[in-house]
Design a protein around this nucleic acid. Structure first.
Lengths: 332, 332
DNA sequence: TTGAAAGCGCTACCAG
DNA sequence: CTGGTAGCGCTTTCAA
């Protein structure tokens, strides 16, 4: 025979010799209970190991206190940091995180339904890529959605991004200052808006500086992808300044360059994006852009709050300026 | 005016011209509904955007389909991988993940209560350190708890670990084969059982090989901690073989050694633990132990299943043999 | 196969 | 301040 899993407020009430309402009030912050009653209730609750279930409250209010966090690729330390900071802020606000790791849009669609069934209060997507379909699936759920680094236009969907265009321009300026002649860009997946925007800013900045347009090689957002793209780039011509769509790529790129006997920064200057911890490691010392995750998270939470109250806040986009972290890979 | 957030089965029933029970049955896998009824219901549900809420079911069954995952230090890629694999396996089983990032035992205690209130089905702790108090807090919740790499003895608490002692012995054997004279160990936090066990195996292995006992330096489980501990170690005497409690430390150690002008592996051989991706990166090429995360996760899930059914399964411990990943840092 | 009705554990609103 | 009572939206008997 399996024992009943949880004691209920009725059992506590019986044991304490009070009504069930009294138990409920005892555990409701601003409610009016006499000290005597409260003490009896607390004692009974203690002996029974009672903790009021949150489930009925969810049923009553349709608010679960759960925020879904959709992530792809936690192996990128940048996202690990986002999860870290977002979750601690959410916890302060009394919310819990429903983690939804996703490897493709397909699984996101599959899981989107489940999220609505749990009555999650909001969805934060930290997907590098958020397809239009996926965005609509989420939007259709009538739950506020905030997407990191992926501008999406749909009802009840907002986005919070690093100012990628600005970062790209600063990268161009910095490389120009180091005497760049042959710029190149290692892009992320073709459908990654962050990558596209960084490239666009980079192009713009190079043009302003009177420099040639960058050659571009596509890569996955991985260490291996960066290494492979760098090899392709060099097979096609000289490079002396390399801006990578993210740090993970940049690190792979740096190792590939060194294996090919090229010196950093003497022969090539390299810049990444995200400022993951490894960028600062001795072996790399990679110049990068700090996306300012705390600011990103703050903006996301503010946006969610707005969407939850106002009736149809949507289509908003917030940009957070990146911070250049200048290190050895661009120091000539 | 705020619109009602979710359509209910009653509304669907009304629109479809059937009873509420019929709607429920339509969305209950093995229930008996005529095709005609089901079609009407599905059509109505479609137009209303109805998804049955999971909340009442949780209330009825006391099972939420939620598994809490308690993690500290997602910045360690090893834990990121655990989260990744665990969550995808959990999702296959129809469970969702409640992520609980924790920075100290204090916050764990604070959050443990919340977990029971959400009626989570199980708790997986991937904390590098799980204090006795914290374990008891969790255990008291009467929810099955499985801890990664931290043997705990409490009711309804089990643990799944890499065979850390075995790994330590293999590290000793490997270093011995490379002609080690001055072994040293960089430990994790003093209360990390994984670190302690790895050291114990290392000691044992060295003794078997007729080598001197290792000198030991304590460190945080971080890159910086490793670097700092290495410096301390060298200040006290020669070292030519270094086993680090985990890879993150080992990488910091390697960079510190190189800054000090020591060559790896010629002057010092280095071994880590976890086999995080960065261990294989060109700049490091660090020999390490793969903990076999898929096997760890499988064992954890099996243990949870057992604890959920049997009435008082507890105190169990499962060991998974690590896999030595030999790389350049020990290749002489 | 169907609909009516009970009830999961709580909160909120009553009257007392 | 207190206890009784009515639901929240489902699943699950139980009759029909």
């Amino acid at each position: 025979m399996v024992s009943k899993r949880y004691p209920t407020s009725i059992e506590v009430a019986r044991l304490a010799g009070v009504s069930q309402s009294a138990v409920s009030r005892t555990f409701t912050p601003g409610a009016s209970v006499s000290a005597r009653t409260r003490d009896k209730v607390l004692a009974a609750a203690e002996t029974l190991g009672f903790r009021p279930s949150l489930i009925p409250k969810i049923m009553l209010t349709d608010r679960s206190g759960l925020v879904a966090l959709v992530v792809g690729g936690l192996e990128n330390a940048f996202y690990a940091r986002v999860v870290q900071i977002l979750s601690s802020r959410l916890r302060e606000a009394g919310n819990q995180i429903l983690l939804v790791p996703v490897d493709s849009d397909y699984t996101l669609d599959a899981v989107a339904a489940r999220l609505t069934q749990y009555r999650v209060d909001a969805i934060v997507s930290a997907l590098a890529v958020l397809s239009r379909d996926a965005a609509e699936t989420l939007s259709a759920s009538r739950i506020p959605v905030v997407s990191f680094n992926t501008p999406v236009t749909a009802a009840r969907v907002g986005s919070v991004s690093s100012d990628n265009v600005l970062g790209g321009r600063q990268a161009a300026a910095l490389l120009h200052a180091t005497g760049l002649r042959h710029p190149a860009f290692i892009a992320g997946p073709a459908d990654s808006p962050a990558s596209t925007e960084r490239l666009s800013g980079f192009r713009h900045g190079l043009r302003e500086a009177g420099l040639p347009a960058p050659r571009v090689a596509g890569a996955a957002y991985t260490y291996e992808g960066g290494a492979e793209a760098a090899t392709r780039l060099y097979a096609e011509g000289p490079v002396d300044g390399l801006f990578c769509a993210n740090d993970l790529c940049a690190l792979g790129t740096m190792d590939a360059l060194r294996r090919a006997g090229r010196r950093i920064p003497e022969d090539v200057r390299v810049i990444g994006y995200d400022d993951i911890p490894a960028a600062a490691w001795g072996g790399y010392d990679l110049t990068s852009f700090d996306q300012d995750v705390p600011a990103l998270v703050e903006a996301a939470l503010a946006m969610i709050a707005r969407m939850s109250t106002e009736d149809a806040a949507d289509g908003e986009r917030v940009l957070i300026p990146p911070r250049l972290m200048e290190r050895g890979s661009t120091r000539v």
